[in-house]
Nucleic acid binder design. Structure first.
Lengths: 174, 174, 174, 174
DNA sequence: GATGAATGAGCCTTCATTCAT
DNA sequence: AATGAATGAAGGCTCATTCAT
């Protein structure tokens, strides 16, 4: 069996993404990870710390999935469109739970700089991702903005409709 | 002095918007509203019910503020641009706390239909708002999507930068 | 429609018998009786007072039902046996909820003389009931004791088995 | 000093027997047991669970006391009579609080199978107890029924009169 | 390195009752 | 005669965290 820390992270990865940050208690995590309460606090100073770790793991996971998904395409423009299909793919896979980063953003207090930074860095990377696909910086930001709203609107309406709308818009833009 | 119910709603209006749903306890609400706990439950069946009431009040407040803000403009296109300036105005007024509806969306479980419906209806109205300003339906949705990401990105980065970006984009679109 | 007091009593009659004393709140009573809270306290000084009223009403109801049930029989011995069939009849009618008096006895604190007296008087009347059917005082008490245990044992096991056992015993006694 | 769990059980043992189930709050238990609220819930999933534990402890205690009490007698018939004296002994010791199992039976809702089972099993054991003392099964049940009513009637009237009556009856039966 | 035991503060909700009109 | 509004106290339960070993 894996180490306690690994089991904590694996369990947290699943629970935070599915239930959210505040709705997931340390009790549930240590119970499902089969780890002693005190062991948890040996690896994570606080729940906040665990959250940072979660976001880091999620960051890596998310970009891996994204890159893997769009790697089927060769051209930049195809990769771009495929990025929006990736959202549809994720919505199906995770039942329209939206973006873990934005969800946690809504759950923390605005002076929680530690977590805020991690979320900001993730989104900066997303923005960069589009900048690398598209030469025109303004266009890249434009698409980034459509990407972001695609995520939250599909979460809100539990539907991919506005992702498709975004795809249509982008087809005309590029 | 005002009635207990009014005080509860006023206090909730402030606290839910500032601290979020889960981070605001009934205890804090009744304490700051100077109301007995049991009085609270005479007016609201549950915290969930209070949330619905809050969202309704917030809905009305938000659209009133928006309409009042853009009423300075006469032309549709000016009203449109002014809507984005409204976001800047609100960010300053509320310290970049973002959209109460989207924030609460992130806090509830996805099977909470009661609250989900209220949030969806609010956003449908926002979408409608742009549909009434712009004849071209596709363009209206396009702008709605930019509006939504403008809200969350400015919340995330505590900056109006991407609102300005959106404004620039829209200037070119219309 | 009937008067508030009547509605309170009717509702209480149903709820106390079905749910028990402690599990039935004043709130539920006034809600189901469609009576204002303050109206309730105009007729009943306290929940305890209502309990006394309930027990009195129940007393009358129970003896009426019993006498009506056994009135089919003419002979004393037949009435006696029929009294135990009455328990079977009531168990079916009220789903083995047992004796309201003994149930409430278990719910009150032992220094609650007011309610205790009402319960004692009811049971004295039951004991008298058998004394009037049977000349032999000792035998009457004997049967009273079997009657009492018949009630609680059938409540406990949700079965009439021990009532039938009692009947068999009594057949041999008389 | 003893462990929290032991203190909880000891306190509960006293309070449930004395005040009853519904009238004893978790708050009072943890206060008198000098235990943190959360500690309580580490050992007992719910108040219902504590009730089951209480009934189990009480079951063991009660039979131990009974067997110890009647062990002074050698003959079955003497043990039988002594069992009724045990009730008198307990009434004095516990101030006519009656049977914890029957008292709790009156406090729970009839669909509470978990607790109901424990109560039923206790009483089955009591019934068995008499079956082992008396060969004649019907007579054993007869005495069991007198035993049960002896308990509740002495609780109700705060008097051992009907226990003595039962003893007299039994003397004639055996 | 790993743990089980213990905690104080707080969660949402309901209780029986009294007030002013 | 009847009411709607308001309440303090308590209900059962869960939170993230720390302690001693």
């Amino acid at each position: 069996m894996s180490s306690p820390k690994e089991r904590i992270i694996a369990t947290t990865f699943e629970l935070f993404a599915r239930q959210g940050y505040n709705s997931t208690g340390i009790n549930q995590i240590v119970a499902e990870a089969n780890v002693a309460k005190a062991s948890f606090y040996q690896y994570f100073k606080s729940k906040e710390d665990l959250c940072v770790e979660f976001l880091n793991v999620r960051h890596e996971y998310w970009f891996n999935e994204l890159n893997s998904f769009v790697s089927k395409e060769k051209e930049s423009k195809s990769k771009l469109m495929s990025s929006f299909d990736f959202l549809i793919y994720m919505n199906q896979k995770e039942d329209f739970r939206g973006c873990s980063f934005l969800n946690i953003l809504s759950e923390i207090s605005s002076d929680n700089v530690k977590i805020l930074n991690v979320i900001q860095n993730h989104k900066k990377d997303v923005r960069n991702y589009f900048s690398q696909l598209i030469e025109n910086k303004d266009l890249a930001d434009h698409i980034y903005l459509l990407f972001e709203s695609s995520i939250i609107e599909s979460q809100l309406f539990r539907s991919n409709e506005l992702i498709e709308t975004s795809k249509k818009i982008i087809t005309q833009l590029i």
